[in-house]
Nucleic acid binder design. Sequence first.
DNA 1: ATTTGACTTAGAGTTACCTCTAGACTGCAA
DNA 2: TTGCAGTCTAGAGGTAACTCTAAGTCAAAT
Lengths: 143, 143
Amino acid sequence: MGYSIGQVAKKTGLTAHTLRYYEKEGLLPFVKKSGSGLRVFTDVDLDWLSMIECLKETGMPLKGIKQYIDWFLEGDSTLEKRLEMFKQHQKNLETEMQKLKKHMARISYKIKLYEKAVETGSLEKAQTDAEIIKERQKIFPEK
Amino acid sequence: MGYSIGQVAKKTGLTAHTLRYYEKEGLLPFVKKSGSGLRVFTDVDLDWLSMIECLKETGMPLKGIKQYIDWFLEGDSTLEKRLEMFKQHQKNLETEMQKLKKHMARISYKIKLYEKAVETGSLEKAQTDAEIIKERQKIFPEK
DNA sequence: ATTTGACTTAGAGTTACCTCTAGACTGCAA
DNA sequence: TTGCAGTCTAGAGGTAACTCTAAGTCAAAT
């Protein structure tokens, strides 16, 4: 019914160092200490870590995550702020995804190009290949 | 038919500082200098910058990008390596996108939750709402 | 001819996010 | 009870990717 820092490190893939660092930065406000000073993590803390991971991996800086946690701790008076934060984050994320998709198309094109190049032994030859040029035009319609 | 560092900065959204930094790091091996030592960028350099942007925004560190450029400069003997690099990068990217999608679903859920919470003035009330619980189960089927 | 603004270099400083060290303490197993 | 892995704190160190400073050069406009 409680986890040591090492157990949580294994569960989350973070290091114990990082968990202490997160706590120091105010990202884990619910972690308790045992009588002898050892951290005792609960499932609530694991839920928070999972939310932190979600926000971090979608590009929110630790400061932003901390802001959210601080608002959470302030209680229901900050509900609008938190909603607004999530909405903004979602918007950023959608923009980001659009960009990623374009970049992926470009990388797929590069793979086709380099497959052709490896086949013929020459990048230049591949670049003048009719199929490749057609492919390229899909990704760079302006050119 | 050549661009100054300031013109390229405007075109790309990077600062002149950053462009010099990229050059120092070996990311812009084709940029020439005028007689008086000013950098002269060409369209080829803009193409490279655009590729650098693509790789950087898809999470490749500058070192990885430099490796690619170094291989490019070595010529056709590194075609396989470059193909392999792009394939690996594509794989990473696909994994990343899957993760992002999951995170986005979670953020959408949070928005619904907080919309409900703002409506009722209480996060706790919102969390016990039947619709919200159903929504939550879509994202956390295990719970 | 002078001013204005962009450009040059080398190198120091910044921010975010860890990552590690040292030296001490804890808790369980043999 | 001895040993050893795990944990503690405070604080230093590291890395990536910029970002800026200083001190000076260059070039177009007035």
